[in-house]
Design a protein around this nucleic acid. Structure first.
Lengths: 338, 338
DNA sequence: TTTTGGCACTTAATAGTTGACAGTGCCATT
DNA sequence: AATGGCACTGTCAACTATTAAGTGCCAAAA
């Protein structure tokens, strides 16, 4: 036998609970896995597992539920390599489609992931640290308004439609943009606002209403600070039994999913494959993986779900997906470099 | 007395229910509004109002709740002009700030609205009908990737980062963009994809891998079809008693708020100020107002909440807000035109 | 004719009771 | 070490008051 009995019982308990979402009793364990022991024996083992802290009981006469520690042990020692054919197939189809757009690739991947796992998948854009302004454009819309566009070296675009100040002409504004393009390109996003301030005296010579103008531009940069993340598959997660029956939990979950800063807070991990199993009453686990994007950027894909999730398939799926994607991006680069 | 007694009773019933979220009985009406009639009289009137269809009873021995018809009558005939000082003050501060950005104005306004009303406010971008491609930009990021940017005459920006096909150089791509700028500018968004197809033979002469390129561009245009709407104040709506106690309703609400197409379906109105009070079991009302933006565009602000909402303040607030905003945009234009 | 006090009636919500059930822990026995 | 047996415990669902809030209606008062 590959596992010692006690570990096997822990393994089965975790797996059965993941499947049924019900506390697991000794009898149901025997039934489901055809164990050759009496229920008393299993009970004794489960008791031991409980005192060791791997299992816990909702109440005296209920079955057992894996604890945080129990899940962690399961994830670390007890799961087996399985990548579902289904997900493998879907990812391969995606890759064969030879989509050129990076966003679209990530996008589709996240859709597939959350469909397969019934979890929410989060795509986090590359870290803004070190991000640099690449170019500034202005597109006049009519006499009264124009759209300013800012692009970073990571291909992130922010835009802002603003009213043209009464005393300014479009020519003056294009002049300002020209100056911005000359002086601000290459500046770190975090420094742009400060540097813009320094340019004010210079701008005064060209443009009458420069103050209003730079203010408008500054506003656009405030938005850069925001988290760039997209969520996929929110609906199916909300249909999970833990949230259907517990509207308090449901509201809490939504509060987190809808608030990027709260979400970001939970995604502390930065390592290759990080598993963050919900503490105490917080019934939420996050699995995150980094992914190497073209242009030396690093994105992150995070799966969010209840503590009771199918860690085995989820982890392998995520690993498989990021591997395949990185391979794809990598191959493209090598062909380009030859 | 301005209102006939029966109408007054309807008015009070609606207002008390809006305040307490509890079915309203004859006694509590007398207590709250110091009526000089006995409960029996009030009961008789309420009975009449029920047979007329303005009120309904959740069950025999409960108080009464306004029906759809009751709310509609209230909105049409019974409310009084009140604009809270608070909202007036906040909007004035916003206007005095002289923000130049249209987005930012709408943005802030919606924040204020949902804060004041505890409802979700939805900002809908201008209709895409008649929207026209204004310009195309390409920003090379590094050897392997570039970002394409598309701007419409309404100041809406879509972008897409894509991998540069192996056989293409950046020069080739800028050539394609040049052709796009020459041939596609002024084309309706809905026609761009078709017209791009027609350009393919022409492009073949310039670029080897034109197919992959145009595909990537086409993908960006598919996104244009998406609804442009932003939501504000979701959290506070979820805290309303109707959703706290009824997790079924809660999940339904979230399903609607998170799905732009479902939401759009409900926002049928197009008139100046449209009130759409939830039918039958659907406990949802929508109040929408058009708003004239600079550049002859029309946006829409919609407030979403439970049927039981404070129509009086909400309606006046919305009217006030859109008036002030339009005035602001208008003044700017006139000054510009002089 | 309108208003009112009184009364019987209805229903939901609350609390208490009970029995079945699923599970446990422990112990004497195998 | 494993097991069968047994007492024990907490939850859940069904049932039963009991209470509270409110109604409808009617005969009497204004």
């Amino acid at each position: 036998m590959r596992y010692r009995r006690r570990e096997l019982i822990l393994k089965y308990t975790v797996e059965l609970f993941i499947k049924t979402a019900q506390p697991v009793g000794s009898k149901s364990l025997i039934e489901n896995y055809h164990l050759d022991y009496s229920s008393a024996t299993i009970r004794a083992e489960m008791n031991a597992l409980e005192t060791q802290g791997f299992l816990e009981k909702p109440h005296t006469s209920a079955g057992r539920v894996p604890s945080k520690k129990g899940y962690e042990f399961y994830v670390a020692n007890l799961r087996e390599r399985v990548v579902s054919d289904n997900i493998r197939h879907q990812i391969q189809t995606l890759i064969e489609a030879k989509t050129r757009s990076v966003d679209e690739m990530i996008n589709q991947t996240c859709e597939i992931l959350s469909q397969m796992t019934n979890l929410v998948s989060v795509a986090l854009g590359p870290k803004t640290t070190g991000e640099v302004l690449k170019s500034v454009h202005i597109v006049p819309l009519d006499k009264h308004s124009a759209t300013a566009i800012f692009v970073t070296n990571q291909g992130y675009v922010e835009h802002k439609t603003f009213m043209i100040p009464m005393d300014s002409s479009i020519e003056e504004i294009t002049e300002v943009v020209k100056i911005f393009n000359e002086r601000l390109i290459g500046t770190k996003i975090s420094d742009v606002v400060a540097k813009m301030e320094l340019l004010r005296p210079l701008l005064k010579d060209y443009v009458v209403e420069q103050e209003v103008l730079t203010n408008a531009f500054t506003e656009a940069f405030i938005r850069y600070a925001r988290d760039r993340l997209s969520l996929y598959g929110k609906e199916s997660l909300l249909e999970q039994p833990e949230f259907i029956n517990d509207s308090e939990k449901l509201r809490k979950l939504i509060g987190i999913l809808d608030d990027p800063s709260k979400l970001r807070e939970l995604i502390i991990g930065d390592g290759e494959l990080k598993i963050n199993i919900g503490d105490a009453d917080e019934d939420l686990s996050l699995i995150s993986a980094n992914i190497q994007l073209p242009g030396d950027q690093v994105g992150q894909i995070v799966l969010v779900g209840p503590k009771r999730m199918d860690y085995n398939s989820v982890l392998w799926a995520l690993e498989y997906v990021t591997d395949e994607l990185e391979k794809y991006f990598e191959v493209e680069r090598e062909i380009n470099d030859e």
